[in-house]
Structures are given as structure tokens and as C-alpha cells.
Computed example of a mutant assay.
Amino acid sequence: MQHGYCSMKDTVVDNIIKRGFDRNHAGEIHGTSYGRGVYFSSSAFESHQYTIPNQSGERYMFLVRVLLGNTMLGDSSVQYIPDGYHTTTNGKSIFVTYHDSQAYAAYLIIYK
């Protein structure tokens, strides 16, 4: 899975490296169409669309290990995952986690 919202290495990226993904920031920048959690995609192209180039034109994306478990279709009303489920999805390539320990940033990819 990839996580593509990373714009400035000194802030967002460093916080993810130090503290992991934090669902408390859900909805601050991007929407919550499939639930109020941390969004990941199995499509690097899709994650790329959420990256923001820095002044040098570099973009940052994490390659992430995500524990999906049982997944269900999500919508904007999901704030807490119902019993028996672990993630929500759009039914295609987007997955939303609701527990910070479900995702581990394995690699940071820096590209132009």
C-alpha cells in the first residue's frame, strides 16, 4: 500500500517517521469519503495524486505495510469501525484504517 499525502520532509514526513500515522488528523486536508481514518491505496498512481511537490520538485510517498483484516464499504459517516471489521474501503483500491497500529511506514520514496 502507499500513502501519498506528504509535502514537506521536515514536517509531515518526519512526524510519520517518528510517531507513525495518526488518525486524529483525518479530514484536516482531504475528505473523509470512506470514513474518518488514515487513507492508503494499493495504487501508486492514485497515491501520487495526493502528493505535493516541494520547491525542488521532489515528492514523498511511503510504502506501507497495512493490516487490512475484515473490510467493509465505507462512507463519510464512519467514525469508528463496527465490531467484526477492521478497515473500510471504496471497493477498489482505497483502504481506511482506524487504529494507528494497523499501518507501518516501511519505506520512504523520494522522487521527481
Rank of each mutant, 00 (worst) to 15 (best):
I29V: 14
S101I: 15
H99F: 10
H48L: 11
S47N: 02
S76L: 04
I52T: 14
I81W: 05
Y34M: 05
Y98F: 13
K9V: 12
T89V: 08
K9A: 15
E58H: 05
Y39H: 02
S43V: 04
V78I: 14
T89H: 05
V13L: 13
Q102C: 02
S41R: 00
Q2W: 10
I109A: 02
Q102K: 07
I17G: 11
Y34D: 01
Y39R: 00
H48S: 04
G91C: 06
F21K: 10
R23S: 08
Y80M: 12
R23K: 09
T51Q: 04
C6T: 11
T32N: 08
I110L: 03
E58T: 02
A106T: 08
T51K: 02
N24S: 14
H25I: 12
T97P: 00
N15S: 13
A105G: 12
Y104P: 01
Q55W: 04
F95W: 06
D83T: 12
S42E: 15
T87V: 07
I16F: 06
F40R: 02
G35M: 04
T51D: 04
G84D: 13
M72W: 02
N15I: 10
F40V: 03
V96Q: 00
V12E: 13
Y80I: 15
G69H: 04
V64K: 04
M1W: 10
H48A: 05
S42P: 00
I110W: 01
C6D: 03
T71D: 15
I17D: 08
K9N: 10
S47D: 00
P53M: 03
L67D: 11
H48N: 12
I16L: 07
D83M: 09
Q55G: 03
Q79A: 10
F45G: 03
S43C: 07
I81M: 11
D75W: 06
T88Q: 07
D75M: 08
L63E: 06
R59H: 14
V12N: 13
Y80Q: 09
R65C: 09
Q2F: 15
M8T: 12
Y98C: 01
M72P: 02
A44E: 14
P82E: 12
I109T: 06
F21A: 10
Y104N: 12
T97I: 12
